[in-house]
Design a protein around this nucleic acid. Structure first.
Length: 474
RNA sequence: GACCCCAUCGUCUAGAGGCCUAGGACGUCACCCUUUCAAGGUGAAAACACGGGUUCGAGUCCCGUUGGGGUCGCCA
């Protein structure tokens, strides 16, 4: 039997971290087994689901590179089928009409809570004749759940789990308005979609028992269940908006690469020995349910960032230039000429080596796109003291004489110059920092001779002139 | 509260009874390399929640305690 997994988000307007990982695990499992990965939008709560909210989910998955098979199923479009199944259950005696009003139910819960008893529906309409129905009340269809014995599931992650049927009350299958509840809809949809493995958050574990009872009543073969532990916030509490329950789009905007996010999410709750850096192909080859852990994990931004730094270093330079340009446009009003793009591309190998995020990368590339005279930050100004300026004046002349404007030649010229000044003269470090400050306006940059090569002769000499002229103006 | 799940360094984890003097990674701290910063290299501090069993032997199995989480809707 071919594997079919599904990801069934409700359209909340974004794909959050936990959902992204659930989707990833389902996708990986399907790809590993050569099966299909399907999507189902749980939009039964029609008020909340807009096309924009649905698109946000698609965008998130696409960004992560999680492609799906077949057309996404819209749960709301299947209401008729759900209702039909509920009626079948009614006819086979596995369900019944319940005329209890909302107020009645609320009172029931209140009494149970006050008495310290489990809060459950008491089954008051379970064996009552519908003829006794109060006038004007539209009934719901409730599942006639077994009251004795127990229900077990053999979870692929959590192992065997059993609950006493007495713990489970008669859930509503079809609302008074004829629409299905989630509990009915998932079972029917998973069955109709031929889903073989339901991989989802741990928060659904207790739901699985009720769903299992439905499968039994319907004489359907239940899928395998795999409930993966939840992701918690850094403080161990449930992931909240404050820290991480952000949409993956927020992480994209906050400068993370999708492959870093995927690698991070993969290692959160799943492991393959001591392997840490795992690319997509390797993940597909290795992923399986027995590698999934049982305990919840905390979201750790530092680790995501570290992985991101790794993937930035691996990334293609042209792709990075493109990504950086998008950010640079927000930081600088300068027009980006072909020359500037060329500079970015040539500088990228050195730049990407020292950036952990795309924000840092863009920031570090800023000096390349600024037009003269560039501004210098506070630390650079400190570096550019009188002695430094004196060195720069001499160095400018030395550099101007270098016939071939290329990093190695420039370095050689400067090293020879420094060596010629003798023991009392400046060391390389004494001239490298002033050069860096004058050329980039920062005290941190890629190797300075690479910077000069990328900037080109006239821009380099020009920027030095700007600093020296400023000296004169003082 | 009831039911269910979970429990190894700060964090993510390796560990399927002897291979554990508990390993790796992120983070932290030193040092090396070095034109700055990264990267890289070397090293350090850092954990089996607690208590009982079972066993010749327990991080690994069982029970309890504690702690954390989840679920208890005509939400999904």
């Amino acid at each position: 039997m071919s594997v079919v997994t599904r990801f069934a988000p409700s359209p909340t307007g974004f794909l959050h971290i936990g959902g992204a990982r659930t989707a990833l695990f389902n996708w990986l499992f399907a790809r590993h087994h050569g099966g299909r990965f399907r999507l189902r939008i749980e939009d039964t709560d029609r008020a909340r689901s807009t096309q924009a909210a649905v698109d946000a989910i698609f965008d998130g998955l696409t960004w992560l590179g999680l492609d799906w098979d077949d057309e996404p199923v819209s749960q709301s479009a299947r209401a008729e089928r759900h209702a039909a199944v509920a009626r079948d259950l009614l006819e086979t005696g596995h369900a019944y009409l319940c005329f209890a009003s909302a107020e009645e139910l609320a009172a029931m819960r209140e009494v149970a809570r006050a008495a310290g008893r489990p809060v459950r529906y008491d089954g008051r309409w379970r064996d009552r004749d519908p003829a006794e129905a109060p006038p004007g009340v539209k009934p719901v269809i409730r599942f006639k759940a077994p009251t004795e014995g127990e229900t077990s599931i053999e979870d692929q992650v959590q192992g065997g789990v059993t609950v006493a049927n007495a713990q489970l009350d008669d859930m509503v299958l079809l609302r008074a308005d004829g629409t299905p509840t989630y509990m009915l809809a998932v079972v029917v949809d998973d069955h109709d979609m031929a889903v073989t493995h339901v991989i989802r958050g741990d928060d659904h574990l207790t739901n699985a028992f009720r769903q299992m009872q439905l499968y039994h009543a319907l004489h359907w073969t239940p899928p395998e269940f795999a409930h993966i532990p939840l992701i918690h916030g850094p403080d161990g509490a449930k992931l909240s908006k404050r820290h991480g329950a952000l949409g993956v789009d927020a992480y994209r905007d906050q400068a993370f690469l999708p492959e870093a996010m995927v690698n991070y999410l993969l290692r959160l709750g799943w492991s393959h020995g001591d392997d840490e850096i795992i690319d997509r192909a390797q993940a597909i080859a290795w992923f399986d349910l027995d590698g999934v852990g049982r305990s919840p994990a905390r979201f750790d931004l530092a680790r995501l960032t570290s992985l991101n730094a790794h993937y930035i270093r691996q990334a293609d330079d042209r792709r990075l230039v493109q990504l950086v340009l998008e950010r640079l446009k927000e930081l600088s009003s300068d027009e980006f000429s072909g020359e500037v793009r060329e500079r970015l591309l040539r500088a990228m190998p050195g730049l990407k080596q020292r950036a952990r995020t795309l924000v840092e990368l863009a920031d570090s590339a800023l000096f390349l796109v600024r037009s003269r005279p560039i501004t210098t930050d506070r630390d650079s100004d400190r570096v550019l003291d009188a002695a430094a300026r004196g060195h720069l004046a001499v160095l400018r002349a030395v550099l101007a004489d270098v016939p071939e404007w290329e990093a190695a030649a420039l370095e050689q010229a400067v090293r020879e110059h420094v060596a010629a000044t003798g023991p009392g003269g400046p060391k390389l470090r004494d001239v490298a920092q002033p050069l860096r400050a004058a050329l980039t306006g920062r005290t941190v940059s890629p190797p300075i001779f690479d910077v000069m090569a990328v900037l080109g002769r006239s821009e380099t000499l020009g920027r030095l002139t700007d600093v020296l002229d400023g000296d004169r103006a003082d």
